Amino acid sequence: MTKCESCVFYQYDENYDDYVCDMDLDEDEMVRFLSSQTDSCPYWRPGDDYLTARRQ
Rank of each mutant, 00 (worst) to 15 (best):
Y16R: 14
A53M: 09
D13R: 03
T52Q: 10
D26R: 00
C7D: 09
Q37K: 15
R45E: 12
E29G: 00
N15G: 00
S36L: 14
D49E: 12
E5L: 01
P46E: 12
T52L: 15
M30K: 09
S6V: 03
D22A: 13
N15F: 01
C7F: 09
Q37Y: 02
C7L: 05
D48W: 09
E29R: 00
S35P: 01
Y16N: 05
F9E: 06
P46H: 11
L51R: 10
F9P: 00
R32Q: 13
Y50S: 02
Y50G: 06
F33V: 05
C21F: 02
R55V: 05
D26Y: 03
L51M: 06
C41H: 01
V20W: 04
Q56D: 12
Y19M: 08
S6K: 13
R32T: 12
S36R: 11
D22M: 09
T2E: 07
S35Q: 13
R55N: 02
T52N: 10
T52A: 15
D39K: 09
R32Y: 08
D17I: 09
E27R: 11
R54C: 03
Y50H: 12
Y50E: 12
P42M: 01
D13A: 08
S6Y: 06
E29K: 02
T38F: 03
C7W: 05
L25D: 02
S35L: 14
E5M: 03
C41L: 01
T52Y: 06
E5I: 01
R54K: 08
D18F: 07
T52F: 12
S6P: 00
T2N: 14
Y43H: 06
R54L: 13
R32P: 00
D48N: 15
F33M: 06
V20P: 04
E27T: 07
T38L: 14
D18E: 12
M30R: 13
R45F: 05
Y12F: 15
E29L: 03
R54Q: 11
D39A: 14
F9A: 10
D24E: 12
Q37P: 00
V31L: 14
Q11E: 14
D49I: 07
E29Y: 00
Y19N: 03
M30I: 01
Y12D: 01
M1H: 10
D13V: 02
D39Y: 09
L25Y: 02
M30C: 07
C7Q: 11
F9G: 01
P42H: 08
V31C: 07
S40H: 10
Q11C: 04
E14G: 03
D49F: 11
F33L: 08
E14N: 09
S35C: 13
C41Q: 01
Y12S: 01
Y19I: 02
N15K: 15
D48L: 13
D26A: 04
M30E: 11
T38I: 15
S6M: 09
V31Y: 09
D49A: 11
P46C: 08
Y16P: 00
D48H: 04
S6N: 15
T2W: 05
A53K: 11
Y19R: 04
R54W: 11
V8R: 11
C7V: 02
S6I: 06
T2M: 04
V31W: 07
V8E: 10
Y50V: 08
A53Y: 14
V8C: 07
C7I: 06
V31F: 11
Y16A: 13
